[in-house]
């Protein structure tokens, strides 16, 4: 008898082939009110985290950018303005519901011509080798089943010299901030999820998945092992969020 491989879904242990479906259910459920919840949960600070990501990206006119787990298209919209008409932004997400919201929002805001929308799994990116100048994955890596496989896939589609930026919840630097943050995420967050989307479970999963995600140094090591060079990370808001950066050699 062979033992079935498992992975974590929040604090639950689930079969590897089950996780993607469970994550998909969470995002189908929250897609319509995802931006509203992000604003409420972070008091609007997620916009500053994303803005800083764009500053560190060094993206310029004419660049090709892949925005993985791009969800509702916040980063893609900003990048489409920077890369201009000669550049290209690919908004990719594994989740159809999130992608639909993102595509509609981009069109409503007038981003067209240099943006394409693509349903893709971060572990098996369907693009040619050495295609992109920059890849971003914001608040998406912790939902990926095999993170190492995803990092290697991203490395493959980056051009040499291209940058990967991983924006993700991480571990607060101070233990006091950690305690406040824990109370907030496990008590207040599911309550807000219940009130706004009538779905406390999805937001409980978000809080749990954040705790199960590798901390700053572990993720940096994972990027080194995947083959990225000059890896480093920036702690933001006391380490609640970290931005990791690596360059394809």
């Amino acid at each position: 008898m062979t033992e079935k491989k498992t992975t974590h879904f929040g604090y639950e242990e689930v079969a590897v082939d089950e996780k993607a479906g469970r994550v998909a259910d969470v995002f189908h459920s929250v897609a319509a009110k995802y931006d509203l919840m992000n604003d409420l949960m972070s008091a609007g600070v997620h916009r500053l985290w994303k803005r800083f990501t764009i500053e560190v990206s060094g993206v310029r006119a004419g660049d090709k950018v892949l925005d993985i787990a791009g969800g509702t298209g916040d980063l893609s919209f900003k990048f489409s303005r920077i890369v201009g008409e000669n550049g290209l932004v690919v908004l990719a997400d594994i989740n159809e519901s999130m992608l639909k919201v993102g595509r509609d929002r981009l069109l409503d805001r007038g981003a067209a011509g240099n943006v394409v929308v693509s349903q893709a799994d971060a572990q098996f990116l369907p693009y040619a080798d050495n295609t992109f100048d920059c890849i971003t994955i914001a608040f998406g890596l912790r939902n990926v089943t095999d993170k190492d496989l995803a990092l290697r896939s991203m490395l493959r589609v980056l051009k040499p010299g291209g940058r990967l930026l991983v924006l993700e919840f991480s571990k607060p630097k101070s233990s006091l901030l950690g305690k406040v943050y824990d109370t907030y995420s496990f008590k207040l967050l599911p309550f807000m999820g219940k009130v706004i989307t009538d779905d406390a479970d999805s937001y409980r999963y978000l809080a749990e998945s954040i705790r199960m995600h590798p901390d700053q140094q572990t993720l940096k090591n994972m990027m080194d092992e995947a083959g990225f060079g000059e890896t480093k990370f920036y702690n933001m808001t006391g380490g609640i969020v970290a931005l990791h950066k690596g360059i394809k050699p």
């Binding site: 600070v45 500053l48 480093k232 920036y234």
Partner: peptide, 22 residues
């Protein structure tokens, strides 16, 4: 900014980014 890049400013990027955004 973290100690893995010691030459940079010690101000939390959230604050400097907020100032520039404003």
């Amino acid at each position: 900014m973290d100690d893995n890049a010691p030459n940079q400013s010690t101000l939390d990027p959230t604050l400097s980014t907020a100032a520039l955004a404003a």
